Simulated scan of single mutants.
Amino acid sequence: MSTITEIPLTPSQACVFTITLAGVLYNMRLTYNVAQNGRWILDIGDANQVPLVAGIPLVSGVDLLAQYAYLSFGGSLVVTTDRGAGEVPTFDGLGATAHLYFIAD
């Protein structure tokens, strides 16, 4: 049985935070990149703030960590929006009408 955890986010606000996923501490940074057609971008680092992956665009309906399986995150990271799969969270929607979830293996 998978455990689903919502990563709490505040709408309209870029953020840097630490979070434990599948028993491992990570540093995450979410920024809104206007130059990329207005997209939220995720960077993930280890507990020592060493970058693991950077520049992941938040798009709903896909496992954002699938291409990084070799890093053994221990689960999937997915975005849902009220507008459906394949949609991009809006600037003021992430944390309100769009949500980020970690689904542990």
Rank of each mutant, 00 (worst) to 15 (best):
G74F: 01
L94K: 07
I56H: 01
A54T: 15
G95P: 01
T18K: 11
D92C: 11
T90H: 05
T20L: 09
Y32R: 10
T81N: 10
G55W: 06
A47E: 14
L71M: 15
A35M: 14
L64H: 01
I7G: 00
Q36H: 08
V50Y: 08
I4S: 09
R29N: 10
S72E: 14
S60E: 05
P8I: 12
L25Q: 11
T90S: 12
D63H: 08
S76T: 05
T18R: 14
E6T: 11
L64K: 02
V34C: 09
Y32G: 10
R29P: 04
L100Q: 02
F102N: 00
Q49R: 14
I19M: 03
Q49D: 14
S60R: 00
G23A: 04
Y26P: 03
T97K: 04
V88Q: 04
D46H: 04
G23W: 02
T97F: 11
S12R: 14
R39N: 07
F73G: 01
N27A: 14
V59A: 09
T90L: 11
T3W: 02
L42A: 09
I56M: 06
D82W: 07
A98M: 02
A35N: 13
Q49V: 12
D46P: 00
A85Y: 08
A35S: 13
P8K: 14
A14K: 13
N33V: 12
P89I: 09
R29D: 06
G75I: 00
I103C: 04
T10Q: 04
N27K: 14
L42T: 05
V16E: 14
I44W: 07
T90I: 05
T90A: 13
E6A: 08
N33P: 07
W40P: 02
R29Y: 03
P57F: 03
A66L: 11
D92V: 07
G74A: 06
G93P: 01
V62K: 13
I19L: 02
T5N: 05
H99R: 15
N37V: 09
D105Y: 12
F17M: 14
V50T: 15
V59Q: 09
Y101E: 02
G61E: 11
R29T: 15
G61S: 09
I4W: 06
V62R: 07
Y70V: 07
T97D: 15
T18N: 13
V16P: 04
T97W: 01
T3R: 12
N37C: 09
F102I: 03
L94I: 06
S72M: 09
T31F: 05
E87H: 10
D46M: 07
D46I: 09
V88L: 06
S76R: 08
S72I: 09
P8F: 08
D105C: 10
A96P: 02
V62F: 05
Q36C: 10
I103P: 00
E6V: 07
Y32C: 12
V78L: 06
P11I: 05
V79W: 00
V16Q: 13
I103L: 10
T20P: 05
D105G: 15
V79L: 02
R29K: 15
D46S: 05
V50Q: 15
A69D: 12
D105W: 08
R39P: 02
D82H: 10
A69W: 06
D92Q: 12
R83A: 09
Q49T: 12
Y32L: 12
A104V: 00
A85P: 03
Q67N: 13
V79S: 01
V88D: 01
V59F: 06
